[in-house]
Design a protein around this nucleic acid. Structure first.
Lengths: 138, 138
DNA sequence: TTTTTTAATTAGAATATTCTAATTAATTTT
DNA sequence: AAAATTAATTAGAATATTCTAATTAAAAAA
């Protein structure tokens, strides 16, 4: 197999494991995998309305309404009626819901610390340069 | 924020996106998120028995029995009675189930190709060296 | 301004996911 | 060998997840 691809596979696995252990650190155990998926999508979409969320997740609007009601009940999400269109409800994460981002940050911080402990300053500089070049491509 | 941590966050997001688009390429749409999670865990655990899978996933054995029965029905998984302990059933992915790995491979291959298109040979060599050093630490 | 469309919700049903309690069958301990 | 333990399953119930169809309310089109 392509060596680079193999390296990526190992790194990818490590990231997934760190994310999973971060999930345990934070109190997201009370949520199902599906509910986590709703939170992740709301987070990525930046306050979508219900129709946008349903479209993005490939589900019907009634399904999303019901699922969101549960997340509102659990205080991870709240709705805000749009001013431009009073029919539309925008979805926001509560402070509790925003812990999702702190959870991700924690996983990334752990990986960063591991790298810092493995590399010397020059190596870190080179690694950062290369990865930045990659991320800023196009 | 720590620059390295930020780079990791962006890279992590890219990997997640590539994995998600790979999932669409392969025919894993007929599975729920939860069912995918079962397959992923069986894959990681390398043919666990039912008790091991239940323990790893933090679920009860009856729950896992029922869930696995559905995945067997859909032909993603099969059971093999252990020779050492005839009570124990080891779980294996079928060929169809193993597409899961090809799906991951596909995502990793896409990322590798993107990197190859961004970096020249020297940069690739350095990047691979650094990441290998990281992965072989400890 | 009446009609049509659109965003969200409610109602009700089907399937999925999980649990506890009880059962079956094989292994281990006494 | 009998008793206790263990792996898996079955039965039955509770909750979660999703759908279609119908409803409400607001916006857009005629």
């Amino acid at each position: 197999m392509n060596e680079l691809q193999n390296i990526i596979a190992l790194l990818s696995r490590e990231i997934v494991e760190l994310e999973e252990s971060a999930k345990e650190q934070f109190s997201f155990n009370e949520l199902t995998l599906t509910q986590m998926h709703y939170l992740e999508t709301i987070n990525q979409q930046q306050n979508p309305n219900l129709t946008e969320l349903a479209l993005e997740m490939g589900l019907t609007k009634p399904s999303v309404t019901v699922a969101i009601d549960k997340l509102i009940e659990k205080e991870y999400v709240y709705k805000v009626k749009s001013d431009e269109d009073r029919r539309s409800m925008h979805l926001h994460l509560t402070e509790k819901g925003k812990l999702l981002n702190q959870m991700h940050d924690y996983a990334h911080k752990l990986l960063a610390e591991r790298m810092i402990s493995v590399f010397d300053d020059d190596e870190l500089t080179v690694l950062k340069q290369l990865l930045k070049k990659y991320l800023n491509r196009k």
